[in-house]
Design a protein around this nucleic acid. Sequence first.
DNA 1: GCCGTTGGTTTCGAGTCGATACGAAAAATC
DNA 2: GATTTTTCGTATCGACTCGAAACCAACGGC
Lengths: 198, 198
Amino acid sequence: MEARLDKNPIVLLELVERLGNLMRTELRKAGSDEGLQPVHLQALVYLSKANRYSNTPQALADYLGLTKGTVSQTLLLLDRRGLIERFEDDIDRRVVRLRLSAAGERLLYESQPALPWQNATRNISPNRIRNAVSALREALETLQEDNEGTMFGDCQTCSWSQKLSQRIYRCGQMGDRLSGPETRRICRIYRAKVEEAV
Amino acid sequence: MEARLDKNPIVLLELVERLGNLMRTELRKAGSDEGLQPVHLQALVYLSKANRYSNTPQALADYLGLTKGTVSQTLLLLDRRGLIERFEDDIDRRVVRLRLSAAGERLLYESQPALPWQNATRNISPNRIRNAVSALREALETLQEDNEGTMFGDCQTCSWSQKLSQRIYRCGQMGDRLSGPETRRICRIYRAKVEEAV
DNA sequence: GCCGTTGGTTTCGAGTCGATACGAAAAATC
DNA sequence: GATTTTTCGTATCGACTCGAAACCAACGGC
């Protein structure tokens, strides 16, 4: 009798891929009224959550796993539609800062791309969701390390984050002070804390 | 003070989408030697696991969340490359049965599209993976119900499945007898068992 | 036999995507 | 301070995906 191979990781992969595919078609439906492709909505969602270090074309490309050339075209389209605004960075005049326009915010609010997912998870206990998040997060971090890809996360679990007072935090890497809401945005210079047993 | 909204489902969605995107770029890399797109590899993987009820273009389209027209083109390409074989069904002469060719099997074996994922999950305990699988499976089932989409699964958790003897099973819906290995393939007429507490 | 349905294919046009080349600003090297 | 080198973003090109719609053939009910 041979040692039984654990097939569960493969099952998990199938689930992730399949859910990813289905959510992509959900995004397609959500964006079809406006003539937007899935990747356009993903970009808008990202920009609505990116913090001050992460609202650039390069960061978006890393996040979506696309090349900067491809992302540049996506941004061109979103700009032409008036859904985002682009402006130069004050310090480094090469980098472009991105921001949702009012129309972009409104579009995101009205199309509600996450709604089917929220319905689909309504009956899953918070505890099980937390566990799933924890496992997938670890998979993602390892995958990114193996790929030398950029890590993304928020200050809650970032080892650079320092708590200065009740409401004020500080990023030990960049040296800036961050307000409470800012610590919940997506950041590209994220570095994971050492794992605690769960 | 308002009731605190639980953001974890959204976090889970982000993880699934991001992992899905990254695995898509992994697939792109894995298939670039052969000039194959991500969706081609996904189709091959599906066909390598589909059972006798599920090896048709329509089933593949449901699984991938694409239209049958789109899938038809994908299959045309795979056929031209000699990676799959298509042949008529004996009973219903409309339906086309699909099967990996030897070259297709070999390609799948050599390109190892799941390898990066297996590495990425190597340090996650089997127990946590099982929990994540369970949660995602439930999300998938609800998502499919809401969408009136086809459900996919294997006999292990299908309520049609009947155990006749040690090694022989039977599908109560189709009436066929199924061997042990066959019960582990993907099936499109899957119906989930009633949930047990985990 | 007629008609609605279902499984697949074909055709078409819009749009994604990577590769490549390019440009400009910053950073590093001398 | 002038030079290379790197980094961030854009533009162009060709291959390919994708849905929509039209189409065809076979099944099923009546």
